[in-house]
Computed example of a mutant assay.
Amino acid sequence: MDSEQTFSVGQIFDTLRKHISLIIISTLLVTLLSALFTFFVMTPKYSSTTEILVNRKLPAEMQGAQFQQVQADVQMISTYKDIIMSPAVLKDVDKTVKSEPGYPGSEEGLKSAISISSQQNSQVFSISAKSTDPETAANIANTTAKVFKQNIGKIMSVNNVSVVSKASVNEKPVSPRVKINIIAGIVLGLFVGIGFAFLRELGDRTVTSEQFLTEDLGLTSLGTVNEIDDKKVKKQIRNSHAGDMTKDGNELRMKRRV
């Protein structure tokens, strides 16, 4: 006999309908665990962003090359990102924010808490910082921009760095994302429940049809035994006992009359 078992579309729906309670319970449990983890385990994090513009000034005799200079400044943003993430900047930032609540814990942690982004063909780039304390997040972003502005002239021939907008305190956490986590819990719970349903179905070796015995196994059917509900059996037994008692009572009354 072939050991592989395949499912038709009808069998798939029958399996899902048969184990619908398992799927629902699994979905509820995983969703509940996801909610508990989101609200009671994960620590909220806050983010603040500051924007910086680096625009190198050209001598008067080179003003005609201004467009090329702008394009060069845009390409230089990748270099500025590397400088910001280097110890030359982060070491001073770390010293400043080390005593604040929500401090990332180390210079490496500070590096992980800071992210830098920029728009295409723009000389402005953003420095974002995350922390478990909203004020610390804003302070990290602003301090990083300040230290970069102070040190970039020593590292490169850049003499015009402007802070376009300072980071402000944002009281709304950026993580955890409650809705996304709950939806992920629902989806994961559904998949887990459906997986368990098919595993139980594959592991069920109970013969459920006469067709399986005759066609798949090639056996001869000698008859079928119908399943009787246990409640009906008990009811028939009670009715039978009641009938016997009635019959015995009638016979006893007839004997007394005689």
Rank of each mutant, 00 (worst) to 15 (best):
D14K: 08
G223N: 01
S48C: 13
T132A: 04
E135Q: 09
M62A: 13
E215C: 09
L53P: 03
G105T: 13
K149R: 09
E251L: 14
S175G: 10
M62I: 05
V9G: 08
N181A: 04
Y80P: 02
E135N: 10
L202C: 10
S8T: 15
S209D: 12
K111G: 10
I52V: 15
K154Y: 11
N160A: 13
T224G: 08
I116Y: 06
G109M: 07
V225F: 07
M1A: 09
V93P: 02
V174Q: 00
F148M: 12
Q236E: 13
I140T: 04
L58F: 11
M254G: 02
A72C: 01
P59W: 06
S26R: 02
D14R: 09
S99I: 02
L188H: 00
M156A: 09
Q236G: 05
V187R: 00
D204H: 06
N151D: 11
L222A: 03
A137E: 03
V192N: 00
S115N: 12
G64L: 07
N160R: 02
Q69N: 14
K232F: 12
T224V: 14
V161K: 03
V225I: 15
T144V: 10
V164N: 03
A167Y: 03
S99A: 12
E61R: 06
V187I: 13
D92N: 11
